[in-house]
Structure formats: structure tokens, C-alpha cells
């Protein structure tokens, strides 16, 4: 028996919104520790990894590890039937054919349940080593979203350069070119969540497809901060911490100048 209850049901809506345009089908693995998911986009250049710890749920029970093969667009359709303030409970048997979703309104006046058919999904699972990255940038997620959105109007490829002073996002295209530099905040600058912080061992410059960075920014509503982890010649990790429960991380292979 698997049962997971989230008082803040809208969180689940936001998570599926953050993934479903990049990945159409995925296995969500449920164990005693919580929920995890790893899935690549169709072209295998990016990967999305979700981690939700059992302690972040209001109730969590998983007697036996199971894998839920989900069509994320269909799950998104069902989650649209939940109110934003609803409590959401997920339920499945030990060898499930379906996932049951129960939505309860805050005053318990409306209770609905839906069953989503599960699928057998063959997936490749990549072993991602726990790396120390040469640069880790922490910045407001809304700022990152804006930069990606703005630069995508001009070109397809974004050059991200991280130095001690700041992070420069550059783009060039047929109509011209553009740069946005965000500078490291000084300690006195306002709220923690509005700050840009850079931890750097050595400067890094990498090129990325803005189309994919755009997909990643669908996770912006999940939290105020995004972290970018970069090292030379390896995929970037764009990590959105989800307060109190876990995180969603996207990996994107850099573009190589030929």
C-alpha cells in the first residue's frame, strides 16, 4: 500500500506543470524514503530529476517500493480538477494498475477522487555522480526566468559566464546581440531570497540552448530561488529547491562550438 497526503496540493500541480512540457512519460519511484523521478526529454539532451522526501508529506506510507508509470499530460489534466487550496492524497496498491488521486476542499465540503491508468514505461536511468561544481550561483528564480525569456527573443544559444564579480548571460542572433549581467549582492542588500550569491573555484563559460532553459523555468512558481551549478565541459544543473520537501533539478548538456 502506498499513500501520500499533501495539505498544499497546489504544490503537486506546480511540479507537474514544471515537468510535463519537457517529459511526456515518466516512472515515479515510491519508497520508504519518499518519491523520486528521473526522466530525459525525447532528444536526450536534458534530464529532469525530482526528489520529494517522505518527511515533507503530511502523511506518508509506502509498504513496498513501487514504480508508477505516468503520462504526465494526463496527470496534469486530472490535477486541474483539484482546487488550489485542496488537500491532495495519492494512493496505489502494491502492484498497481492505477493511481488514485483524492482531492479534499479545505472545509471538507467537497471530496473527489480520480483514477489515472498507469503505463509500462521503459526508461534509461543515468547514474549522475555527486560532483563538486566549480561554480554555484544562487539567484532569484524570477530573475533567471526573465533573463531566459528576454534572451530567447534574440537567439537560440546562451553563453553563461560565471566569474567572481557576477554572471553574464549572452546571446547573439540575426537581429543583433545582447548581454545581461547579474552581479553578486553585497551582504547588506535586502532579503536573502532576492540575493545573488556566487561560490566559485574557477571561472566557467558554457553554452546552452535557450529552448531548454525555457522549459526549466516552468519550475519558477515552486520557489523564490534557483541554483545553477556549472563546471567546464559538463552539463549544467539548474536546481529549484522546494521548501521543506525536496527539489527539482534539470541537467542540460552544453553546446559545443564546432
Amino acid at each position: 500500500m502506498f499513500e501520500a497526503r499533501l495539505t498544499e496540493g497546489s504544490l503537486l500541480k506546480k511540479i507537474i506543470e514544471a515537468i510535463k512540457d519537457l517529459v511526456q512519460e515518466a516512472n515515479v519511484d515510491c519508497s520508504e524514503e519518499g518519491l523520486t523521478m528521473q526522466a530525459m526529454d525525447a532528444s536526450h539532451v536534458s534530464l529532469c530529476s525530482l526528489n520529494m522526501r517522505h518527511g515533507g508529506f503530511d502523511h506518508y506510507r509506502c509498504d513496498r517500493s513501487i514504480s508508477l508509470g505516468l503520462n504526465l499530460a494526463n496527470l496534469g489534466k486530472i490535477l486541474k480538477c483539484a482546487g488550489n487550496d485542496d488537500v491532495v492524497t495519492l494512493k496505489a496498491e502494491d502492484e498497481p494498475d492505477t493511481l488514485t488521486l483524492m482531492f479534499e476542499s479545505p472545509n471538507q465540503e467537497r471530496i473527489s477522487d480520480f483514477e489515472l491508468k498507469l503505463m509500462d514505461i521503459e526508461t534509461e536511468h543515468l547514474g549522475i555522480p555527486n560532483e563538486e561544481y566549480k561554480c554555484t550561483i544562487s539567484m532569484p528564480s524570477g530573475e533567471f526566468q526573465r533573463i531566459v525569456r528576454d534572451l530567447a527573443v534574440i537567439g537560440e544559444t546562451c553563453i553563461i559566464t560565471c566569474t567572481k564579480e557576477g554572471v553574464k548571460f549572452s546571446v547573439s542572433g540575426d537581429l543583433g546581440n545582447g548581454n545581461v549581467t547579474v552581479r553578486q549582492s553585497s551582504a547588506a542588500d535586502g532579503d536573502e531570497k532576492d540575493q545573488v550569491k556566487i561560490q566559485m573555484e574557477e571561472p566557467v563559460t558554457l553554452n546552452f540552448a535557450l529552448r531548454y532553459l525555457g522549459f526549466f523555468t516552468k519550475a519558477t512558481p515552486l520557489g523564490s530561488t534557483v541554483k545553477l551549478h556549472m563546471s567546464p565541459d559538463v552539463p549544467i544543473v539548474v536546481e529549484y529547491p522546494i521548501d521543506g520537501i525536496g527539489s527539482i533539478s534539470y541537467f542540460l548538456a552544453p553546446k559545443i562550438d564546432e
Binding site: H44, V45, E124, H125, L126, G127, T157, N207, I256
Partner: peptide, 14 residues
């Protein structure tokens, strides 16, 4: 010209 590599170039199958 930009070459977009796949993630499999960087990570092994688990």
C-alpha cells in the same frame, strides 16, 4: 555552428 551533445556522453547508464 553549435553541436548539441546528448547526456549519455557525460553519464553512464545506471
Amino acid at each position: 555552428f553549435w553541436l548539441q551533445r546528448q547526456l549519455g556522453k557525460y553519464y553512464e547508464d545506471a
